[in-house]
Design a protein around this nucleic acid. Structure first.
Length: 273
DNA sequence: CGTGTTGTTCAGTT
DNA sequence: TAACTGAACAACAC
């Protein structure tokens, strides 16, 4: 589930806890921790308060602070990545645990729960803002705010399939498999096209649809699956294009399941799929 | 018992 | 070098 829009939803969940104090951290499964053990996590954030969270790409950034002060550069920060199956939710204190609740932050009001079936990613803790910057340095600009010139410069810098380029978090941060398929379908560009040889109108369409899809999806906290969305037909047995009705192609591109419309998204002449 | 999955990383290959 | 491929991670559904 978690791509940029989902993580934006989790950011709002975390934001609802701003100003609340962490009374206890229950690490139910330390397999959901990354680069930190349960002991260090628990002791270093106990009694701290959640400051205003932010998001970059698919990472949720949860700065902490001492009660009564702003977040300082020397304060620690939680960085969460949700992999393919993670989520963040608020639960009533002491309510029943879910099988996949891995870490529970017990605050002075409610509980914040990191729930994840597969534990492909997890929760990190950085000791200060310098470590946070170092951790985030491998990400490109956030996909929801990147401007067209920056996006196109970055795409032109490589000669790869568009699908692979847009999925590369160091190029643009936040796009996942569903979003990329959705954007390319709306922009009428084939996923196997080279990122280097896009026409000016194609570049503009990709940037425009990127913004539209993400804005709409962020409001929802997920990619909408309603009528008119490619995402809505992904799991049909024989999906057809929501625009023109043509049966969609369904294959592997750049190692990922990819859906596209052979009529709306013309195949590049130099490539076979 | 295979196959597949909304994410990421790494080793090996072209 | 850059791009690509497959496996691995972990857990579950079909």
């Amino acid at each position: 589930m978690p791509e940029l829009p989902d993580v934006e939803g989790f950011r709002r969940v975390l934001a609802a806890h701003e100003g609340h104090r962490i009374d206890r951290v229950d690490v139910i499964d330390s397999g959901a921790l990354r680069d930190v053990d349960a002991e260090r996590l628990t002791t270093s954030i106990n009694a701290l308060v959640f400051a205003g969270p932010r998001r970059h790409g698919k990472r949720l950034i949860g700065p902490l602070r001492q009660r009564g002060t702003r977040h300082l550069e020397s304060d620690p920060t939680l960085v969460m990545h949700f992999g393919m199956t993670g989520l963040l939710l608020t639960a009533r204190a002491g309510s029943d645990r879910h099988t996949h609740d891995r870490v529970i932050f017990v605050t002075d009001s409610e509980e914040l729960r990191y729930r994840d079936q597969r534990k492909l990613q997890g929760i990190r803790l950085v000791d200060d803002d310098a470590h946070l910057d170092a951790l985030m340095a491998d990400l490109g600009p956030d996909a929801a705010t990147v401007d067209q010139d920056d996006l196109c410069d970055r795409l032109r810098n490589h000669d790869r399939q568009l699908k692979a380029a847009l999925m590369d978090q160091s190029l643009i941060a936040g796009l996942g498999n569903l979003t990329v398929d959705e954007v390319l379908w709306r922009a009428c560009v084939h996923p196997s096209r080279s990122s280097r040889t896009l026409s000016a109108p194609e570049q503009e369409r990709i940037h425009t649809e990127l913004g539209r899809v993400l804005r709409y999806a962020m409001a929802d906290g997920q990619i909408p699956t309603g009528p008119g969305w490619l995402t809505g037909v992904r799991d049909s047995t024989s999906p057809s294009c929501p625009g023109c009705g043509t049966p969609l192609r369904n294959s592997r591109i750049s190692g990922r399941r990819t859906l596209w419309c052979p009529r709306c998204q013309q195949a590049p002449v130099s490539r076979t799929d």
